[in-house]
Design a protein around this nucleic acid. Structure first.
Lengths: 334, 334
DNA sequence: ACCCCGCATGTAATCCTTTACATCGCAGAA
DNA sequence: TTCTGCGATGTAAAGGATTACATGCGGGGT
């Protein structure tokens, strides 16, 4: 249906090779021929068939991206970073995000396998073995926010431990002694790291190390909201809470509101991620800033390096920093 | 590098045709041969080269998706809907979202052109002429939230007018007579439609039709926050505000908080979209629910219909409905 | 004993582009 | 005049999979 390079060649009365030359590298081709070809191509509305091109070139200039089901704003930020870098170097993103089950994800990866030049996976409870026999050696992979181990895959993660430490440290400096933790589930890598930061700070600052202060969450707003009830039932009641991500922290703020309470007076709250919304709630959320867009950008940079140069896989950490706003009891930064 | 079908054929001591038959339709092939082939494929870690397959099949099973730069949660919801439907029928999403300029978008579409079976564009200030000479006739296109006109492209939009009307109607029923509007800019399709719904309700309910009540916004949170100042300077001061989207409405709530005011007592607020966050702010946001995920699902359904059957382009509207929460003065629905 | 049919499998064309190599023609040198 | 060299262009081979058509073989019917 669509015009092929042959059609253009016929119309311009030249060979396909000449057309290709004109449209691509423009080797030495006579100026008049060149014009003739361009005119023909335009007249036919010719666009090269990228599939054929890819087949020939043995690369697709496409990158597969797998993100988990949740994380609305987080997801958007990371994708933005990925897209920017990808576009800057003429690559495309094949995104899939609505999977929860491992076998679903497996199917998606399978179907991506012959199509992409590389893979970026954000998948906090990923097991390496799982990937090992799924992905061929020749395909570069960057893993986000997951265990760093194994020399085969590049990894990139936030500095979860230090970020969480700083959050709890800050609450300690506000004078809180009973600081609750709302976790993100035992299987999630980010959640485990953040918990370890929490525990370190609790220990270093001599805070109350009561295990019942560690409440189990799952990174959803609803978990945050529900946690308020649990917090209120603890005795003595904690005066502060560190939520392992902002979604849950926002849920906590909501839960407090429903109970007729308010942060920071009834409960100081600190989150993690610094999603854009953290600015805009009332009270604004003190949180650990995780550079999400940068995560996306760096991931893409590294992947493309692996694809092109065959640089070898490395393991990087992105620094986080505490942003003081209202929910911890500070007056917000300018 | 990777094994090809020929390698598998050699190893299994059969022809490529047989390998292909085994791996796909599994025509009638002798059981023993079948096993032999499967064994060989597994041993070599063979995955068919999708590019070659696509070339042969004359379809890529990929859909291009262009979304604007903004709209964090909105974007995530729509993408989710798209992804679900796409996956269900074995298609993939090529997403691009970080463009603001028209020529940037043009470049992206160009580069998508030979790669995808269809295109979905969410691009509220899109001109049809622009697309007409960019996209070949043979490529199915679905346009989201934009002008419905022209027989060439399918369109799909929310029922903006009625939604906005219902929002203002509801504020009128609360007894408000001076209701401000925070627009989304003059060029944006959604924004214009919502404004027309606002105006219709203002007129039907005999509300104050003062043009200075229409404040210009741009769908960002920051615009919402900034609008609070303007609202306060109006005399007489409006008692309610309809924001053309939730992001701005949340910005307004934040702005009120900073001014030591609160919804709904100082200003009743209603938004549009019902992003997940609308539930979770305090006070929770009364808003017009726009089925974002359904938008994505329907768009993909329609596009695939166009790709496969060549059904002809239609124009659909998705219904919206008002969700009563706290920011308008209601007690929230269960 | 011969033919025909159908099953299992192989051969080769096709999808469209890029590009190494071949060819052609012309100008300048001997 | 004939040869050489080079610039412009053409020819054809990849690239990997699918599939229409061809082939070969064995069994059943007459």
């Amino acid at each position: 249906m669509d015009a092929t390079i042959q059609d253009v060649a016929d119309r311009a009365d030249v060979s396909v090779a000449t057309v290709s030359r004109v449209l691509n590298g423009s080797d030495r081709v006579r100026e008049s021929t060149k014009e003739e070809v361009v005119k023909a191509a335009r007249a036919l509305g010719y666009h090269p068939n990228e599939t054929a091109r890819n087949l020939r070139a043995q690369e697709t200039r496409m990158v597969g991206v797998l993100l988990p089901n949740m994380h609305g704003e987080f997801f958007a930020q990371v994708t933005r970073g990925l897209d920017r870098k990808a576009r800057a170097s003429g690559h495309h993103l094949m995104v899939s995000n609505s999977h929860t089950q491992e076998d679903e994800a497996k199917a998606v990866i399978q179907s991506l396998l012959g199509r992409v030049d590389g893979l970026i996976l954000l998948w906090p409870r990923l097991s390496h073995d799982f990937l090992d026999d799924l992905v061929p050696d020749s395909l570069p992979v960057v893993l986000l926010n997951t265990d760093r181990s194994g020399p085969r895959f590049e990894t990139l993660a936030f500095d979860n431990h230090d970020g969480a430490y700083a959050a709890v440290e800050h609450l300690a400096e506000h004078g809180h002694e009973r600081v609750a933790l709302l976790t993100g589930g035992p299987q999630n890598y980010d959640a485990r790291e953040r918990r370890s930061g929490y525990r370190a700070a609790v220990s270093d600052y001599g805070l109350d190390a009561d295990p019942s202060l560690e409440l189990e969450g799952d990174f959803t707003r609803e978990a945050g909201r529900a946690a308020v009830e649990q917090v209120r039932s603890l005795t003595p009641r904690p005066t502060a809470l560190f939520a392992s991500n902002d979604s849950m922290a926002l849920g906590v703020l909501r839960g407090l509101h429903e109970a007729g309470l308010e942060a920071p007076d009834d409960l100081a709250v600190v989150g993690f991620d610094d999603i854009p919304m953290a600015h805009y709630v009332a009270p604004s959320l003190t949180t650990v800033h995780a550079p999400m867009q940068e995560l996306g950008e760096r991931a893409m940079e590294r992947l493309l390096a692996l694809v092109q140069d065959d640089a070898s896989p490395a393991h990087q950490t992105l620094h986080t920093r505490l942003v003081r706003r209202e929910s911890c009891g500070c007056s917000p930064e300018p």
